[in-house]
């Protein structure tokens, strides 16, 4: 896909934003030289973009993240480096924003410059199988809360409907109608549907703009220990 300079990934808590942001950054690096992934999550204590830091570093992606992420303290702090996202126009970046309106608050302090430059996309990540956002109406409610918190308007939807390790091709296919309803009600295009790479070949011809997610390689170490691999 043709990415703007900044790609903002927002959505409901637990909708899969971090997995998508990490994969998008790796994809973007294939097209551009100067790429960053910024973790603006001030909500989540575990399972953060920092879990994929090795893969990002190995691929030459600049990783902007609070020093306290994945540490033993609970500080909702933002790194001073976040101003590079708006000040350094040679940088292309994917921004992993925290869930719900609480997480989107952190993005608000950059909203003036992001809106002024107007070279961004902000995508709403949706998952039909999350219990608080099972239909278009509830997605719209979360979307309006996020927009009001960060003062930036969405430009598209990413359908990331999944049931974790129990996801099958049918799971994803059954979410297409839901995604279409969201698209209609929110008046936003579905820019991509994301699936784990093992089921990508089964769906490539059935769903437009399908984007494979490498989750296993980037999988958090904790999940591996627990036997979720």
């Amino acid at each position: 896909m043709n990415c703007k300079r900044l790609t903002l990934i927002c959505g409901h808590y637990g909708s899969g934003k971090t997995n998508i942001a990490v994969n998008l950054a790796l994809q973007l690096k294939k097209q551009r030289e100067n790429v960053a992934l910024a973790d603006l999550d001030i909500v989540n204590p575990y399972f953060r973009a920092k879990d994929s830091m090795d893969a990002l570093n190995q691929n030459g992606i600049r990783f902007i993240c609070s020093d306290f992420a994945n540490s033993n303290v609970d500080l909702p702090a933002l790194p001073q480096e976040i101003y590079a996202l708006t000040d350094d126009k040679s940088l292309s970046a994917v921004i992993d924003v925290g869930g719900d309106e609480r997480g989107a608050l952190a993005l608000g302090r950059l909203s003036d410059k992001i809106n002024e430059e107007n070279n961004f996309d902000m995508f709403m990540v949706i998952n039909k199988y999350r219990p608080l956002t099972p239909d278009a109406e509830s997605v719209k409610e979360v979307m309006l809360e996020i927009e009001s918190a960060c003062r930036i308007s969405f430009t598209g939807i990413i359908n990331n409907s999944n049931l974790g390790r129990e996801t099958t091709a049918e799971t994803v296919l059954a979410s297409v109608g839901f995604a279409d309803e969201c698209s209609k009600l929110l008046n936003l295009p579905i820019v991509m549907t994301t699936v784990e790479d093992n089921i990508y070949p089964l769906l490539r011809d059935k769903i437009p703009n399908l984007f494979p997610l490498d989750i296993k390689r980037l999988l958090d170490q904790t999940e591996r220990k627990l036997g979720n691999d």
Binding site: P45, Y46, G164, R165, E166, E223, N228
Partner: peptide, 8 residues
């Protein structure tokens, strides 16, 4: 961990 992790 059980509190934070996601499963069906």
């Amino acid at each position: 961990t059980i509190g934070q992790m996601m499963e069906p």
